[in-house]
Design a protein around this nucleic acid. Structure first.
Lengths: 153, 153
DNA sequence: CTGTATCCTCTTGGATACTG
DNA sequence: CAGTATCCAAGAGGATACAG
């Protein structure tokens, strides 16, 4: 892989821009949060997010298009067939984005002594963090990183 | 620290919401990206982002208020005094958010064979990743995590 | 319950002109 | 160069009504 300095990067083609244009939207981020917490039905999202139905409808459809969510049909005995919105692999892989946002919010935006959401491990239920690792899996600090431009694979 | 299930979380007070309301904005995220790449002056941001001056002015002021950026005066010999926008600690700590967005974008949104931004280590200049770690520093998988509600410290 | 369509308002962003 | 002020157009979001 060949790398160079980002002086003359074509910024419109940067994947951060693409990522932001897909999920850099308040409602989409909030729907993702609800999905990670476990919401799956239209009215669950609406109830939890206090959003109008038209906006919710638009955003859910957009997220289906982007393949962040998929619509899955299911049927409970005695009920009619329903469908629910589940995270796709692409959507689940936003977990680290959500966690990084959450951890930053807990550090800088949380009022002292207030309750908050925490992501924990399932062994001891203590908060988990995110660490930078190099290609060998060793941890490193942000200051030991560089921004480059290149072609992956 | 006492933790419970997130069933009855007051979602308006969730730090993900606070985080999103501070930085869940296309322009703010893009200004952050430029700052991480190294931009500091008004016209650098404007040139690189192709944004109107009025919007840029508004967003920069908002970011000063939020203390994501700080305005620093400096003077080169023979020039008049200038000032530049630098990331604060709070702003720099968004590094992991930006990197998680970038890595996700490189995985799911990048066209094959196309150039992109990559964050590398400074030793071998190979791409870095983000790993979940528990309180002891051991790595773990997303599926070995849980979402809880509680009071930190 | 799970949506879509319509209307109406408020906000966002671009263009332009102006200032130190 | 480094912004601010003003005006205008387009889009986002809420409320409401309607449909399968």
């Amino acid at each position: 892989m060949e790398l160079r300095e980002p002086k003359d990067l074509d910024r419109d083609l940067c994947p951060i821009v693409s990522a932001i244009s897909e999920i850099g939207d308040k409602w989409i981020l909030l729907i993702l949060r609800e999905s990670f917490i476990g919401a799956r039905r239209f009215d669950e999202f609406q109830e939890n997010l206090q959003v109008s139905k038209s906006v919710l409808s638009n955003k859910l459809n957009k997220m289906l298009e982007l393949e962040l969510l998929q619509k899955v049909s299911y049927k409970n005995p005695g009920e009619r067939t329903r469908h629910e919105y589940r995270l796709t692999r692409k959507g689940k892989d936003l977990g680290k984005v959500i966690i990084s946002l959450l951890n930053w919010g807990n550090t800088y935006l949380l009022e002292e002594g207030k309750e908050t959401i925490v992501i924990t491990d399932t062994a001891e239920f203590k908060p988990v963090g995110l660490e930078l690792v190099n290609s060998k899996g060793d941890k490193l600090k942000l200051r030991d990183t560089a921004i480059k431009v290149g072609r992956l694979k």
